[in-house]
Design a binder for these strands. Structure first.
Lengths: 351, 351
DNA sequence: CTGTTAGCGCATTCAC
DNA sequence: GTGAATGCGCTAACAG
């Protein structure tokens, strides 16, 4: 029949397949969608036509009629940071298993860009979205939710409005565990280097720190709290400031591993030995934590799992399965390595 | 007029806008697409209706009729590695500027998964793709290109078939520059730790190394070449092996920064000082390279630019603008830091 | 079990 | 300048 359709020309459509198989397009659609009500031999004929023509269903058409795109968006500040990359990896992985594709959107911490991106994502490109550390205000997020656009927040930047599904880590417990570890070793002056201070995770870790101090009867001292920016250099500077104190801390708890590494470096620069002269604890359990010298005691965050969990929450939303638990906190865990030890000498106050 | 359409129900369509503005859908479409042939006041009326209804065009519909999805795929092994993340970040950025969205696909180095992903991407979801370090065979890639699916390879794993557009770095020159730097310092026994040996980048860096040696009249010695796996631990083990040699090298050139850091660690473990007793050079210029102690001399790869360039090449393809240069190599550059110095002592062979 | 028909939301001729 | 009509490729009733 000379049925060889000009090879490599226009993409084959369902109609071409129907014609080649000698059936109607409805039948083709049925076998394509795995409907059971098709005769075995008909199915075979269709399938072979599909192969011959190298046909695959046009997703735009399917989306238009079905109302679903099989695409979900993920917005996050940037992909270059291990922290976000691990969340992204976990989410992507989970989504892949459910035949969903990921539309990536990086906000670069730019409010405008975040808004643009969100607008693009919601204009029918995606069925729903994962928002990692979204800088959008609560109002904006609620506005998003109003028209019924399904989304899940991972690692909220600020407290979320009621009813917004989210996934985060037990930051308060993590902060508490780190502090208790240091207290148990005998430390009493514990400096902390917080991350960007108005981020929810920072607030909670700080709460954990204060809780632990209170339980141990150690007074909270504001001078021992320094703010920084999550970066190695920032941590180094912050630690330097702490070590300049008249009565410096014997231990430093940094709110992420980068800053902890910076703290260790600051100690090193002043001839102090970690952990002998200064104990250091980080947060995250980044790749470097296990390989830096000395290896870092830190609070592990299940970042990939947070991504995966966020994805599966979103999947439930998309299926209209009510997600029983809409606000999920994944466990953090203290990982003790070589950067912490009992305080060697007791710095007596100069006063 | 009580024109408030049931708030928050069904998404508004172009028809709703037309009705609200008292015009036809054709006119709405015109203003939506910025056509000039619309009266100013008509345009205003339409625009305000668009705002009132919170309308945004349905991308699936637009794609169906227009044949373009405004989505491009990016496949890469994984996002957690800084190397890939930086390429991804650059590409995403460039694409954002051109109003294209990115569909992310991670292969995890799994051949099957890569094929599945590619099939999904090409079935009308995306207009084209960026393939980072694709493990698909040359045949498969050509098969991809045949139906006219536009794609660009970034950092090819193996030599590409003629006509396949690609972006990579000047790996050979980089390998040569690193080696020449060490030779200039006076090193004559230069060990190298290669990455996965059948990757094109490894092969070329090795070529660069050999070229430099040859130019300097230093004989190539196979015993000084060790293969590894791009990881810190792998580099450490490889370096240990080199340092065990009867006549060990006075310098080591590792094919990425991770392995270089491992090499430095191996030296440290045997009481050798970097760079006094052993010089170390890496490749990539990762974040750690600048912060590790001692800071690492390395060959910088413009990873983000590679992503950006790949994206803009793809953009040209999508616009049917013939890309003049279809095979692009971006410059690498030697960054000299603290891990290299002239050899202090000459290890005399034990034999 | 299979074919016919009617849209999904939009861009695009072509008239007016 | 603007409107009416057509179809993109596909799924989902509805008949038979």
């Amino acid at each position: 029949m000379g049925s060889n359709p000009r090879p490599g020309r226009r993409r084959a459509t369902i109609r071409d397949v129907a014609q080649a198989a000698g059936v109607s397009i409805a039948t083709v659609s049925r076998v394509l969608n795995g409907r059971p009500d098709v005769a075995a031999d008909t199915r075979e004929r269709v399938l072979s036509a599909v192969r011959d023509l190298g046909f695959s269903t046009n997703r735009s058409a399917r989306s238009l009629v079905g109302g679903r795109t099989f695409l979900v968006g993920i917005t996050l500040p940037l992909v270059e940071a291990e922290y976000f990359a691990r969340i992204l990896g976990g989410a992507t992985d989970e989504l892949y298993d459910h035949d969903l594709q990921v539309v990536l959107a990086t906000t670069l911490h730019l409010r405008d860009r975040a808004n643009t991106l969100l607008a693009r994502l919601t204009s029918g490109v995606t069925d729903g979205a994962l928002l990692v550390l979204p800088e959008e205000s609560r109002e904006m997020l609620q506005q998003l939710a109003a028209p019924g656009y399904p989304f899940v927040v991972i690692d909220p930047l600020e407290p979320l409005a009621e009813g917004v599904p989210s996934v985060s880590a037990t930051n308060a417990l993590g902060g508490r565990a780190a502090t208790e570890h240091l207290l148990a070793l005998g430390h009493r002056r514990i400096g902390i280097i917080t991350g960007v201070p108005d981020w929810l995770a920072s607030v909670e870790r700080l709460n954990g720190y204060r809780t632990a101090l209170a339980s141990a009867g150690v007074p909270f001292e504001p001078a021992l709290v320094v703010e920084s920016d999550w970066a190695v250099e920032g941590g180094e500077a912050a630690a330097a400031a702490l070590l300049e104190l008249p009565d410096p801390p014997t231990a430093i708890f940094a709110f992420n591993d980068n800053m902890a590494i910076g703290a260790a470096r600051a100690a090193h620069a002043r001839g102090l030995h970690v952990p002998v002269d200064l104990s250091v604890v980080g947060f995250d359990d980044s790749e470097q934590a296990a390989t830096t010298a000395p290896t870092l005691t830190t609070v592990r965050q299940p970042l990939a799992d947070m991504g995966r969990m966020g994805a599966s929450l979103l999947l439930r939303l998309l299926d209209n399965r009510p997600a029983d638990a809409m606000r999920i906190e994944l466990q953090t865990r203290l990982i003790v390595r070589d950067s912490t030890a009992a305080p060697a000498r007791h710095f007596t106050a100069l006063s």
